[in-house]
């Protein structure tokens, strides 16, 4: 089309790499949260859950960061983000939150891993070396609770920041939507926190699905799904319908709503009723729903301005 009479359409600055990053950061946050909370309250009961959560957190945040850097116009200068700080910029703040989070998940994953390793050793090694091995283990294991506690904070921070990153774009009337019309309280951070927790939890459960009785987790997950349904309904009511009818509509109704929320909810209700283990399909769908949600929010916000 020619420059004089042609019509120019909105281009998308942030594409799928960013969508996937936001998703993975969410998973990481949710998984770390699941693991650390479990660790703090009932460490003995769910070792598998803790391990799954800790590892998933580390892997997803590393992959996520990788994608983020790849998406930069100048990937090799990413380090400049650490030396030029703008406290007014959510991204700048985010850089430090995520760095902290990544550091913690490293340490935490290591602690969890070394503990497990120690466990194995106890079984294999001969009596005389036992003492040494465990004592070393115990030495660092002392840090585990504080790290977990700190992790709780950073997990929540990471999950919420992904929401603030978008909601802080005041010129984007979709991302910038206020909670129940309240300008002061942006909507996305809340939505992303819930979604992150539920997807992170779901992912963790997939990793630990032979981890014995997980019924408490299933219940928590169901609650989260219901909360998310409520939030999505609020969003639906508080912004222009165009956002849900445009080219992104299919993704929203199929991916986010059906696969991500309704079906898993019904399925888990059915599971509880019939005492069937539906954890894999349910969690799988929740995760897919979470990914769809990020795609939907990222693209819709930029396409329909």
């Amino acid at each position: 089309m020619d420059v004089i009479w042609g019509v120019s359409q909105n281009e998308v600055a942030w594409g799928q790499l960013i969508a996937i990053y936001l998703f993975l950061a969410g998973i990481a946050g949710g998984a770390f949260l699941t693991a650390s909370v479990t660790d703090i309250f009932s460490k003995k009961q769910y070792p598998k859950v803790i391990r799954s959560g800790a590892y998933i957190a580390l892997v997803s945040i590393l992959v996520g960061l990788g994608l983020l850097v790849l998406d930069l116009g100048r990937p090799l200068s990413f380090w400049k983000l650490l030396f030029n700080v703008n406290m007014g910029s959510v991204m700048s703040i985010g850089v430090f939150i995520v760095s902290g989070f990544t550091g913690l998940s490293f340490v935490y994953a290591y602690l969890v891993w070394s503990a497990a390793a120690a466990q194995n050793q106890i079984q294999v090694t001969s009596a005389n070396t036992e003492v040494a091995a465990t004592s070393v283990g115990q030495g660092i294991q002392a840090f585990r609770k504080p790290v977990a506690a700190l992790g709780v904070l950073f997990s929540i921070a990471t999950a919420t920041y992904t929401g603030f990153l978008l909601s802080d774009v005041t010129t984007n009337n979709f991302w910038n939507t206020g909670f129940l019309g309240m300008e002061a309280i942006p909507f996305l951070p809340i939505l992303f926190l819930v979604s992150a927790t539920s997807t992170g939890l779901a992912a963790t459960l997939i990793g630990a699905f032979r981890g014995g009785d997980l019924s408490t987790y299933k219940k928590i997950d169901m609650v989260l799904i219901i909360v998310e349904i409520v939030l999505i309904s609020i969003l639906y009511l508080s912004v222009k319908p165009i956002f849900f009818s445009g080219s992104m509509a299919a993704l929203f109704w199929l991916g986010v709503v059906s696969v991500g929320l309704i079906v898993p909810l019904l399925l888990s209700l059915y599971g509880i009723a019939k005492h069937k283990n539906v954890i894999l399909p349910v969690c799988g769908m929740v995760v897919i729903g979470g990914l769809s949600l990020r795609y939907f929010i990222v693209y819709t916000g930029q396409l329909f301005r």
């Binding site: 600055a13 942030w14 116009g73 100048r74 990413f78 983000l81 991204m91 005041t170 301005r305």
Partner: peptide
Amino acid sequence: DKCVGCMYCLTACPYDARFINKETGAA
């Protein structure tokens, strides 16, 4: 020099005035 090409500004500009320069990778 300082720009890392994160495109945050592109999403923020309500006038679509910005782009990532193909040659410099900067806004």
